[in-house]
Structures are given as structure tokens and as C-alpha cells.
Amino acid sequence: ATNIVGKVKWYNSTKNFGFIEQDNGGKDVFVHKSAVDAAGLHSLEEGQDVIFDLEEKQGKAYAVNLRIK
């Protein structure tokens, strides 16, 4: 899925991951530091509006192509 809109539920910059809540009511999506770095960001803030693509690997969904809304 592409261009999914959501809000950062939480992001832990020490542990380098967090979760994004989808605006469409879907399951929360894992986001890793690598996606944050690829977006040219240092971190994510709770409540921040983002747009992302959804990829699945080994049955787990995660956010890629992250951008600030």
C-alpha cells in the first residue's frame, strides 16, 4: 500500500523504532530508524502527521518512504 496517512503514536530514538497510527483505522505500523534516516529526519515526534508506504516482510508490516505531511 502507498501514500498512507497517519500520526506518530510514539518513537524511541534510543531504541531506534516506534509506531505510526494509521488514520484509516488499520493496525499500528512499525517504523525503524532506517526509514527515519532515509527521510532525512533525525527523529519523529509523538502526534506528528506523516505519509508512508507499507511493506511486509516475514508477515510483519512496516513503514517505508516516510515523509512529513
Results as ranks from 00 to 15, higher is better:
A1W: 11
T2P: 11
N3K: 11
N3E: 06
I4K: 14
I4F: 06
G6E: 00
K7L: 07
K7D: 01
V8N: 01
W10Q: 03
W10S: 05
Y11C: 02
N12G: 05
N12I: 14
N12W: 10
S13V: 14
T14S: 11
T14G: 15
T14P: 07
K15W: 09
N16Q: 12
N16I: 02
F17C: 03
G18K: 00
F19G: 01
E21A: 08
Q22D: 13
Q22F: 07
Q22G: 11
Q22S: 15
D23R: 08
D23G: 12
D23M: 13
D23H: 12
N24V: 12
N24E: 09
G26K: 15
G26D: 15
K27Y: 11
K27I: 13
F30K: 02
F30S: 02
V31S: 01
V31D: 00
H32G: 08
H32L: 05
K33Q: 10
K33Y: 11
S34I: 10
S34P: 03
A35I: 08
A35C: 04
V36M: 10
V36Y: 03
D37T: 09
A38E: 15
A38I: 04
A39Q: 05
A39Y: 03
G40A: 11
L41D: 03
H42M: 09
S43R: 06
L44K: 01
G47Q: 07
Q48R: 06
V50C: 04
I51E: 12
I51F: 11
F52L: 03
D53L: 03
D53Y: 04
L54E: 05
L54R: 13
L54Y: 11
E56R: 12
K57R: 07
K57L: 07
Q58F: 07
Q58V: 12
G59H: 15
G59C: 04
G59W: 06
A61V: 14
Y62M: 11
A63G: 07
N65K: 10
N65I: 03
N65V: 03
N65C: 03
N65S: 08
L66H: 00
L66N: 00
I68R: 09
I68Q: 08
K69A: 08
K69P: 06
